[in-house]
């Protein structure tokens, strides 16, 4: 067989295999998630995606009678990947914020917890910031907000704080802590946890729902959750399902599904199962 023929056959095969028309797949709804943000979404030792959002998403798909498929995607590229149609929805602990709403649409929220700092128990910051305290709403410039931010700035001045790239927590550091702390951006919160343990960053900033279960595991036994929780404002209105702008059909699937599952208590039951507390929002 001539070389040209082999090439032609190979190339043909390849194009045919690679460029499957999407019509053949359209009945399957693909949901993008991170798989590295326990207990929202994580990967277990069998290599399978597990977590609150995996259970919730599968339940929605079951009730709405559609085929669903999960796609793992790094968090900092998850919105661009949705826009590039790598999948049709995002369930990745992603909060509904004004900034994100400029690019994508969201379903109604299904959960939400404040963002809070974590440090090594042995760090002087543990005492300086103080034990985990009340939630401070960031929506309006109140005296309480100013007091909390001032206290935080005083304790963290000159320190290095780690956050996951592309998160609301990164946004907070940019908006309120610029010039006060050095920000270090991580691909995953798991890598951030590694570096808090290693003492490479003085503090980490993430969702309370991530820290709490982490501190109960071996890897987080030296970690303390400290200071005020923050929510509202730039932190958004809770975690929702992200869909492409104008994709009303997909949005409706999740809005309807969530409404039903909230009403019959499934969302709350799943939250209690995975977070050990009620993380649901209305």
């Amino acid at each position: 067989m001539s070389r040209k023929l082999v090439f032609a056959a190979l190339a043909g095969l390849f194009v045919a295999a690679a460029a499957l028309p999407a019509d053949a797949q359209q009945r399957t709804l693909r949901i993008g998630t991170e798989g590295a943000y326990a207990p929202w979404n994580a990967t277990d030792t069998a290599g399978k995606l597990v977590g609150f959002e995996i259970d919730l998403g599968n339940e929605i798909c079951k009730r709405q009678n559609i085929q669903c498929e999960w796609v793992a995607q790094a968090f900092d590229g998850i919105i661009p990947a949705l826009v590039a149609r790598r999948f049709d929805a995002i369930m990745a602990g992603m909060s509904i914020t004004e900034r994100r709403l400029e690019t994508i649409d969201f379903s109604q929220p299904y959960a939400g917890t404040p963002s809070i700092f974590a440090v090594l128990k042995t760090s002087p910051l543990a005492a300086a910031i103080g034990p985990a305290a009340d939630r401070v709403p960031m929506g309006e410039d109140t005296p309480a907000r100013k007091a909390a931010l001032d206290k935080l700035s005083a304790a963290l001045r000159g320190k290095t704080v780690g956050v996951q790239r592309a998160t609301i927590q990164e946004g907070f550091l940019n908006d309120f802590m610029k010039g006060v702390v050095t920000t270090r951006l991580y691909d995953t919160n798991e890598n951030l946890l590694l570096d808090i343990n290693a003492g490479r960053v003085d503090a980490g900033f993430a969702s309370y729902s991530y820290w709490l279960p982490a501190t109960e595991k071996e890897a987080g036994r030296n970690i303390a959750i400290v200071g005020n929780g923050f929510s509202g404002g730039g932190f958004g209105r809770g975690v929702g399902v992200g869909v492409r702008k104008g994709d009303a059909a997909t949005k409706k699937i999740f809005d309807d599904g969530l409404a039903e599952l909230k009403k019959d208590g499934t969302v709350k039951a799943l939250a209690l199962k995975w977070f050990k507390f009620d993380a649901t929002v209305d």
């Binding site: 900092d76 590229g77 919105i79 661009p80 900034r99 690019t103 994508i104 790239r165 592309a166 951006l185």
Partner: peptide
């Protein structure tokens, strides 16, 4: 990459 995470235009 930081720019992309803010503008979503990779």
């Amino acid at each position: 990459r930081t720019f992309i995470s803010q503008t979503f235009k990779p």
